[in-house]
Computed example of a mutant assay.
Amino acid sequence: MNQNLIDYIRDHRKQIFENWLDKMQTLGMERIKNIISEQVYINMSSDFVHLILSDALQHQDTFVQDLEVFVKRVVKLGWPLSYLTNGTRTIGKVVLEGFVEYNENPIAPKTVQTELLYEFDEWLTPIYNNVVELYSNSWENTVMLQKVALQELSAPLIPVFDKITVMPLIGTIDTDRAKKIMENLLQGVVKHRAEVVLIDITGVPVVDTMVAHHIIQAAEAVRLVGAKCLLVGIRPEIAQTIVNLGINLNQIITKNSLKKGIEAALAITNRKIVEAELEE
């Protein structure tokens, strides 16, 4: 890169950053400050600008790794990709405009201008491409981890009494989630040595043929490993839908509430809830 340009960047880093902040404000990027403190925004922005400028001053083998660490911070905060892409372009614009204004003799010859623009493109384009790639990879990884976490939370098996477990289901059940339900049921029955499993569909908005099929499969799988399955939380509208669709749930014990389901489960395991008499 042009040595005069490098000297300008080294001597005017603070001014470059301040001008960058002003231009980012005109691009609407300061709206990010609505969700975080102004100091956090300034600190993050300062790290970003100085990271990019440091690459111009001295190419380091660790630059891409350092950039990756910063991009992960941006993704973790939930900031958009436009913050990084606009920020990268704005750095180039601020540096170029400041350098031209700083020089006493304007850069008039077209050959000099062309060389300068070429050097800028050679410097910033790889950074821009790295930013987009790193952000995309980090975002995809974050989404994947969140999906895995949600899947693990979407079908929990909870032991409530000795030999009795409950699986509360909330939300829509698709094929992927049905597989997770089946896995958790079978693993949980063995792990907790459950004799009765209650599947609570109180929070399931719609029970169609596919959902009923998955539930029947889960109940059959539980039976094969030596436990009984109860379907609880069947609301009147769900019961009507099941009847209208002609779905056969004869092999599954059904109850309209979790309370009645637990009472039935206790009866199956030869227990019941009784009120204790308090001594006066």
Rank of each mutant, 00 (worst) to 15 (best):
residue 95 V to I: 13
residue 262 I to L: 15
residue 25 Q to T: 08
residue 125 T to C: 01
residue 178 A to D: 02
residue 242 I to M: 07
residue 115 E to P: 01
residue 214 H to D: 06
residue 249 L to C: 11
residue 44 M to F: 03
residue 165 T to F: 05
residue 6 I to Y: 03
residue 45 S to R: 11
residue 224 L to A: 07
residue 205 P to M: 06
residue 233 G to Q: 04
residue 185 L to M: 14
residue 116 L to E: 14
residue 194 A to P: 07
residue 154 S to T: 09
residue 245 L to W: 12
residue 231 L to M: 11
residue 139 W to H: 13
residue 28 G to D: 04
residue 125 T to M: 04
residue 172 T to C: 01
residue 267 A to V: 10
residue 252 I to A: 06
residue 80 P to Y: 07
residue 86 N to S: 13
residue 130 N to V: 00
residue 99 F to P: 01
residue 40 V to K: 09
residue 264 A to K: 08
residue 206 V to L: 13
residue 197 V to L: 15
residue 7 D to M: 07
residue 133 E to L: 12
residue 161 F to W: 15
residue 145 L to V: 06
residue 59 H to V: 14
residue 261 G to E: 08
residue 109 P to A: 10
residue 9 I to L: 02
residue 190 V to F: 05
residue 167 M to R: 00
residue 168 P to R: 06
residue 158 I to R: 12
residue 201 I to Y: 07
residue 165 T to R: 01
residue 113 Q to A: 11
residue 75 V to P: 08
residue 261 G to F: 05
residue 64 V to W: 03
residue 215 I to T: 07
residue 1 M to G: 11
residue 1 M to A: 11
residue 165 T to D: 15
residue 239 A to F: 02
residue 258 L to H: 10
residue 235 R to Q: 15
residue 102 Y to Q: 12
residue 202 T to I: 03
residue 215 I to W: 00
residue 38 E to G: 06
residue 223 R to K: 15
residue 15 Q to I: 14
residue 68 E to K: 15
residue 157 L to N: 03
residue 82 S to C: 05
residue 199 I to A: 11
residue 51 L to S: 02
residue 153 L to Q: 08
residue 83 Y to A: 09
residue 227 A to N: 07
residue 249 L to D: 14
residue 198 L to D: 09
residue 170 I to W: 00
residue 189 V to D: 12
residue 212 A to M: 07
residue 150 L to M: 14
residue 152 E to C: 03
residue 34 N to L: 09
residue 24 M to V: 05
residue 22 D to P: 00
residue 77 L to D: 05
residue 222 V to L: 10
residue 43 N to F: 00
residue 140 E to G: 02
residue 64 V to D: 08
residue 254 T to I: 05
residue 247 I to S: 11
residue 199 I to P: 05
residue 183 E to D: 14
residue 28 G to T: 08
residue 268 I to V: 12
residue 36 I to H: 09
residue 42 I to V: 10
residue 32 I to F: 01
residue 19 N to S: 14
residue 190 V to Q: 12
residue 170 I to H: 00
residue 97 E to R: 03
residue 19 N to T: 09
residue 58 Q to M: 07
residue 82 S to Q: 14
residue 144 M to D: 05
residue 205 P to N: 10
residue 134 L to A: 11
residue 68 E to D: 13
residue 66 D to H: 01
residue 26 T to C: 02
residue 279 E to P: 04
residue 61 D to L: 06
residue 74 V to K: 00
residue 261 G to T: 13
residue 10 R to C: 05
residue 157 L to I: 15
residue 213 H to A: 08
residue 26 T to G: 02
residue 199 I to G: 00
residue 169 L to E: 01
residue 256 N to Q: 10
residue 233 G to C: 05
residue 274 V to Q: 11
residue 140 E to T: 03
residue 138 S to W: 06
residue 76 K to C: 08
residue 135 Y to R: 02
residue 170 I to V: 14
residue 83 Y to P: 00
residue 58 Q to C: 07
residue 89 R to H: 04
residue 116 L to W: 09
residue 227 A to F: 09
